[in-house]
């Protein structure tokens, strides 16, 4: 009799474990329903900007290292762009607006572009960048953990990536950036 009931308890516990396991999986599935499955790399946010070297746009054969580009103690906005990329035109007015902010220095990384096209683009729509660099084969943008154009990084004075935007900057992103840089400067 005692043996029988002990067996029953074991059996009950066994089923309880399975029940809990199913419940666990069910809740995982439930929570997964509302999270996006599209992967956006965010590994580098909050970390220090990786080292890289990039060719200068104005001066062929001149190369800049990371420390030469981000040499001042201020906020930098690194923007990857190309003349052939439609969304880049979309975000261009925001970049122009941002270039008026003196607390911020804009660095453009021209991604796999023809030089004359890039120049034409800047002449026509205005050049918001304090410095323009070239990424001929995509290797610089890979070093930055980027995967397309446009992509934008907000880098603080300690060369840490504070914000990252994949795709064209929107007005809300503009406000986010302003808030970040002005908040820091007030303190």
């Amino acid at each position: 009799m005692f043996l029988k009931s002990r067996e029953n308890i074991i059996r009950f516990l066994f089923f309880l474990v399975i029940f809990l396991l199913l419940f666990f999986l069910g809740s995982i599935f439930f929570k997964s329903l509302n999270t996006t499955k599209i992967f956006v790399p965010d590994k580098l946010i909050g970390r220090s900007l990786p080292d890289f070297t990039a060719e200068s746009f104005d001066d062929k054969n001149k190369y800049f290292t990371k420390n030469e580009i981000f040499n001042e103690k201020k906020y930098y906005l690194l923007n990857i762009w190309a003349s052939w990329c439609g969304p880049c035109r979309e975000e261009h007015p925001i970049l122009i607006k941002l270039s008026n902010d003196h607390n911020l220095e804009l660095v453009g990384l021209n991604f796999k572009d023809k030089k004359e096209n890039a120049l034409k683009f800047l002449n026509k729509s205005g050049n918001p960048y304090n410095k323009v660099l070239i990424d001929n084969n995509g290797s610089v943008s890979i070093s930055l953990g980027a995967y397309g154009v446009p992509e934008t990084f907000l880098i603080n004075e300690k060369k840490i990536i504070e914000l990252k935007f994949v795709g064209p900057l929107k007005n809300s992103d503009y406000k986010k950036i302003l808030k970040k840089i002005n908040y820091k400067n007030e303190n």
């Binding site: 599209i38 992967f39 796999k112 995509g138 290797s139 943008s141 890979i142 995967y147 397309g148």
Partner: peptide, 23 residues
């Protein structure tokens, strides 16, 4: 591949895949 998620770099011909292959 990040652009066409679900493929490997080898299978993809996207710009990103080509950059990574070069790298």
């Amino acid at each position: 591949c990040i652009v066409c998620q679900g493929q490997s770099i080898d299978e993809s011909n996207s710009d990103f895949a080509i950059n990574i292959k070069n790298l």
